Amino acid sequence: MHKVGAKSDFGLRRKLLAAFCTGALLPKLSWAGAPASSPLLLDLQRDGQRVRVNVLTPEGYRAAAWMLRDIKAGNVIGWPSLTLLVWAAQLQEALNTHHAYTVFAVTSGLRTQQTNRRIEGAAQHSLHLPDANNQFHAMDFKPLGATLDQLELIATQMPAGGVGRYSSHLHLDVRNSPARW
């Protein structure tokens, strides 16, 4: 199993992203926690739209990218980290299994520099910002069907990544070591 968060993970994610953008399915996705032949579903809601997609397909990946767009910058679309989508889908599945069916209402995904500057308290080097490959590594969302307490409890069991609990939502990001706030 590939260790998520290792330095080599960024190179692997770039290769996976390139394959998804060209429409190729990769059987190597087993490192992400589910074999490529099994759907890894993510149910997202935002601005009156709702999608339930398999993040391991090109169509599902593109739909998730649309739902995580920067709406404050005129619907700018970036490319979410595949690891971020996989973690979100696994988190949602755990909530569905142990609590109740839960939809994630997206409050933030990609942020342009302009949007990030307008958000009070946003980190200057936020993982919501696109990197050199236009890939971002963070999302904020509310659980619809479970409580923030239930969501936080499961999310903090992840071995890596950032999990931040706020009064109205949870922040999830991809980083090399665990961070909790």
Rank of each mutant, 00 (worst) to 15 (best):
Q49R: 15
L144N: 08
P143Y: 00
C21M: 15
R175D: 01
Q150I: 03
W79Y: 15
H137D: 07
G145C: 03
L95K: 08
A36G: 01
A123D: 13
L17G: 01
G33D: 02
L56N: 02
T102M: 08
G121D: 12
V4E: 11
D173H: 09
V55C: 03
T147P: 01
T156D: 09
S8T: 13
A132Y: 07
M139D: 00
A138S: 10
L16K: 02
I77P: 01
R165P: 01
Q92E: 05
G33E: 04
N75E: 11
V53D: 05
A179C: 09
V103P: 02
I154H: 03
V103R: 08
T115F: 03
N116E: 03
T156P: 00
S108C: 10
F136I: 01
Q135E: 14
I119K: 11
R62G: 01
A160W: 09
V174I: 15
R118F: 08
V106T: 05
Q49L: 12
L91H: 07
G5S: 05
K15C: 07
A146M: 04
P35L: 10
V174R: 08
A100T: 11
H2A: 14
A132K: 13
N176Q: 14
H125R: 14
H99G: 01
T115N: 04
D149E: 12
E59K: 10
V4L: 15
P39R: 06
A36V: 06
L127Y: 08
L40C: 06
Y166H: 15
T97N: 12
G60T: 07
V163G: 06
M158S: 13
R117E: 14
F136C: 02
V86K: 01
G78L: 02
V4M: 12
A6W: 10
R52Q: 14
A100G: 04
E152P: 00
D140K: 06
A6G: 15
R46A: 14
H169L: 07
A179F: 14
D131I: 09
W181Q: 12
A160D: 05
